[in-house]
């Protein structure tokens, strides 16, 4: 029933600066169907933004090396020529960026910046028509059409993010990549922006790749969830799979959930995942999470890590099976 829109196969991205090689993305595979929303969750430096930029083939030139395949409508984005990419960017795939304060060009009117996408992808149109279209798009994101003649510095942060979303949806893209769209906004504005994105998703029927480190956003917004750690997807599943606390999870996912304080219980101390994200230039061997994992054994310290799959739910961990067997045994006993 669902049509594959985007398929990432074994994507590896390295940044090479001098002699230092930073392994940002280490062989991830993902599928995104039409109309679906996928949440990509992980802490800073997990490779989320790098993955997003690879999908548009916008990694910084010269310093980055991408391997693997990113199939958009069956065509490999990584192998496309510049003129092919230009036709896709902004029209079929578009991106909402993290920092609304700096993502708009300060010297152009907001309307001009939205109009630019339209004229790039829908050909030249008379000035009046362009203004009308821009006005409509602004109204869609909740900004009065008359404000298209203003400059970005005349807008507040939340308004700027709306403008950026307006730019992204102007050509009704099939895939919208939202790279932490609410991180720079305060909580009430976050809710507004998310509500608006939800409405837009329903009316445009776009697929969305939602990059975030906020599990709350994932829970309210996504159909599928991928948890990223050190450039790998350590757990993938439907929203129910991931948020069902009775199911088996990757220890990292468990750690993320445990770190959320429960409002109904008095917790004297927060419960963090101990340790730090590994340095991408010096990733640990074996399972990349083992130095921080409470269940790690010697076997975890080397070799490839098996992936445990159950339906759509997959977990990249050697210990999950053992731990659950043990738990079952204890229950039976």
């Amino acid at each position: 029933m669902s049509e594959k829109l985007l398929e990432i196969k074994d994507l590896k991205v390295r940044y090479v600066v001098g002699k230092e090689v930073s392994e940002a993305v280490n062989g991830i595979s993902l599928t995104l169907n039409k109309g679906e929303t996928l949440g990509l969750v992980g802490e800073t430096g997990a490779g989320k933004t790098t993955t997003a930029l690879s999908i548009m083939n916008m990694l910084p030139q010269y310093v980055s090396r991408a391997e693997g395949e990113i199939l958009f409508h069956g065509k490999n984005v990584l192998k496309m020529k510049n003129h092919e990419l230009r036709k896709i960017r902004g029209k079929q795939i578009s991106m909402v960026f993290q920092d609304p304060m700096t993502s708009l060009n300060p010297v152009y009117r907001v309307g001009e910046q939205i109009g630019e996408v339209l004229s790039l992808h829908e050909g030249k149109m008379p000035k009046e028509e362009l203004r009308k279209r821009v006005g409509e798009i602004l109204e869609m994101v909740g900004i009065p059409a008359a404000r298209q003649d203003e400059y970005p510095h005349q807008f507040s942060g939340g308004m700027k993010q709306r403008v950026i979303i307006a730019i992204a949806i102007a050509c009704r893209p099939e895939l919208l990549i939202a790279d932490e769209p609410t991180t720079a906004l305060d909580v009430t504005i976050q809710a507004q922006v998310l509500d608006m994105m939800q409405e837009l998703r329903d009316s445009l029927n776009s697929s969305i790749l939602m990059i975030t480190h906020d599990l709350g956003i994932v829970a309210s917004f996504c159909d599928k969830v991928a948890i990223m750690y050190a450039g790998e997807i350590v757990e993938y599943g439907t929203l129910e799979d991931i948020f069902d606390r009775t199911k088996a999870h990757h220890p990292y996912t468990e750690g993320l959930f445990n770190a959320i304080p429960n409002l109904n219980v008095i917790t004297p101390r927060l419960n963090p995942i101990h340790g730090l994200t590994p340095d991408p230039t010096e990733l640990p061997k074996g399972c990349k999470f083992h130095p921080r994992c409470p269940y790690a054994t010697d076997a975890c310290k080397e070799g490839a890590v098996p992936v445990l799959t159950e339906g759509e739910h997959s977990i990249m961990c050697r210990r999950v099976k053992d731990r659950f067997k043990q738990a079952e045994k204890e229950e039976q006993a």
Partner: peptide
């Protein structure tokens, strides 16, 4: 190196 350059590229602007 500014963010709006990235926005421009993401729009599909030519180099």
């Amino acid at each position: 190196r500014q963010d709006y350059i990235r926005t421009a590229r993401a729009k599909g602007c030519s180099e």
